[in-house]
Nucleic acid binder design. Sequence first.
DNA 1: CACCAGGCAAGTA
DNA 2: TACTTGCATGGT
Length: 217
Amino acid sequence: MEEEKNPFLRVYNRLFAYYGPQNWWPGETALETMVGAVLTQNTNWGNVEKAIANLRAAKQLSFVVLHGLAVDELAEYIRPSGYYNIKARRLKNLFQMIADEYEGEVQFLLDDSLEGARENLLGVKGVGPETADSILLYAAEKPVFVVDTYTHRVFSRHEIVAEENDYYSLQQEFMDSLPEDVQLFNEYHALIVAVAKEFCKKGVPRCSECPLYELVP
DNA sequence: CACCAGGCAAGTA
DNA sequence: TACTTGCATGGT
């Protein structure tokens, strides 16, 4: 394999070689992916799975059914995901936007332009940049790089990016440095989560076991 | 026991 | 503009 000069691609190649494909959100529907994107805000994914399992057991995971639920009932099902009252409200806000802007058709949101869909998603109270971009990438399969706190931690700790980067400047660096490829963005974000959880934890120094340890000068 | 998890909005100065 | 705080369950 030839030597990759672009540090963002070097890191990707290394992580992919180490972890392999992560296969995030593979067989689920776009609606489930959107619900998961909201529920996983500052929350362990295992708790989100419990919440979604509750919904699946009690209800059909269709837009019409979920949109028709009262906030209190919705909150009860998603309780294991934490912040359940505010997240129930956020989900309702998201459903309402789809009803208002896309005639209640999730598919129309998925088929909208990247810019149009993003604007509508960011207009939902409770959907910020990361949640919007997660939906755009993982549900709508738009070429958007999803940044999160792990991305910032891993890349600033390894001195690939500056510490003071905010969400959009970090995203810009990635998207300026990488080919515009949905599958690449999908795997890369998931790989960053994997290495952050295993080696690049909060409050610990760079460790020599990390697959990225000797990768950057 | 403390700390963290695939954020966001609202409040304060 | 730049911090700080509330939201909450469940795993380690």
